[in-house]
Amino acid sequence: MHSVVAFTDTYLPTVNGVTYTVESWRDRWRARGGRMDVVYPNAGGYEPRDGEYPIRSLPFPFYEGFRFGLPRIPRAVRNVDIVHAHTPFALGLGGLRLARREEVPFVASYHTPSSEYASYLTSRDRLEDGIERLSESYERWFLGQTAAVVVPSEATKRDLRSRVGDDVAFRVIPNGVDIDRFRPVDATAFRERHDLTDADTLVGYTGRHGYEKCLGDIVDAVAGLDATVVFGGDGPARDHIEARARTRGVDARFLGFLDRDELPAFYSSLDAFLFPSPVETQGLVALEANACGTPVVGVDCGALSDTIEEGVTGYHYDLGDIEGFRTAIGRTLDEVETLERRCTDRREAMSVEHAVDRLAEVYDAVTGTG
């Protein structure tokens, strides 16, 4: 098995899709007898395990909770076969430096378009457009340094190829879900703990509350439906969403960050998971919900066009079509028992084990050992 070091701008104790992917891939790679070290920003509140190297970091002033790691290479990280960057920012550059120094293949995973952060840097449209163009130019350069770019969906591959070109070797590997953890469970205790027992029909979302995710559309779509909407997670858009719910008279409950152990019960408590974000590279939470037997109503845009199987694991609606969103929610609720059964039938195909099998193939290919 190859010796790998992963560089990531987000890791424990922060919980999000990137953290989950890096940690789950690392654990399974090690279980197979390989080595996968992780270099990440030190945010405090977490005791590193063997092979985890926190480095000095700085807060990102425009996005609470996000930190930039400095482009350092821990002295203990050496004798590696592959460097795998999960970020194009400073820590990704540290990974690129290590790969060049050790003369080993450099692989990058594409999780989030860097241009999406432009809206957090300025509210001026002209300046935001300039930052987006600069970000995309930098992204093309960074990805051009790789032996392979791992993307979580065909939609992301198509989008990147249109912007980066054909010189980059793209490899599609869905991030995968821990189906031992994410499975249908009895959500009674969860509902009681979070005062949700009075709600007959629950729909909701969990994840980062970013403006780019269009979460206010959930409130608008649920308005007029006999349903309670519940939000897990947090982020800069939360106050805006709460105010919107009050204005629209929507019964919305905000739970804040949920412990990862609570997520299977959260998903299992819902009749439908709502996902209006047009900027997903895969939409891992949609697969987690499906693995728990919960259908997803998502925008027919970006990766969600592929992640959600129409009429099988949920339904789509067109971006910006609030009435279409509301109709898709209603249809999902009408067919919920059938959709739940179809979701659980597809659990094996979603597993992280399949993802790591594909990852091993990529590592073999870039090192010429496959």
Rank of each mutant, 00 (worst) to 15 (best):
H2G: 01
H2K: 14
S3C: 05
A6W: 02
Y11V: 01
G17P: 05
T19L: 09
T21H: 14
T21Y: 11
A31V: 03
G33L: 13
M36Q: 13
P41D: 13
P41M: 12
N42C: 06
E47G: 02
Y53H: 15
Y53G: 09
I55H: 06
S57D: 13
L58F: 13
F60Q: 06
F62I: 03
F62T: 14
Y63R: 14
F66G: 00
R72P: 00
R75Y: 01
R75I: 00
A85Y: 08
A85L: 13
A90D: 06
L93K: 05
L98G: 01
R100Y: 03
F106D: 05
F106K: 08
Y110I: 06
Y110P: 07
S114N: 12
E116M: 10
E116T: 12
Y117G: 04
Y117Q: 07
A118F: 00
Y120S: 11
L121D: 00
D129I: 00
G130Y: 06
R133T: 14
E136K: 11
Y138P: 00
L143Y: 10
Q145A: 06
V149I: 08
E154T: 09
T156Y: 01
T156V: 06
R163S: 08
D167R: 15
V168F: 09
R171D: 14
V172N: 04
I179C: 02
D180A: 15
R181A: 13
R181G: 07
R191T: 11
H194N: 08
D195L: 12
D200I: 08
T201R: 09
L202R: 05
V219E: 04
D220C: 06
L225D: 10
L225F: 07
V229H: 09
V230F: 01
V230S: 03
G235I: 08
R238I: 03
H240W: 05
R246H: 12
T247F: 05
G249D: 12
D251Y: 03
R253L: 04
R260S: 07
P264G: 13
L270W: 03
D271F: 01
F273D: 00
F275Y: 11
P278V: 08
T281M: 12
A291D: 02
P295N: 10
C301R: 14
T307R: 03
E309H: 06
Y315G: 10
H316P: 06
H316L: 13
E323Y: 04
R331Q: 15
T332D: 05
T338W: 07
E340Y: 04
R346M: 02
R346T: 02
H354W: 07
V356P: 00
V356W: 00
T367K: 13
G368T: 11
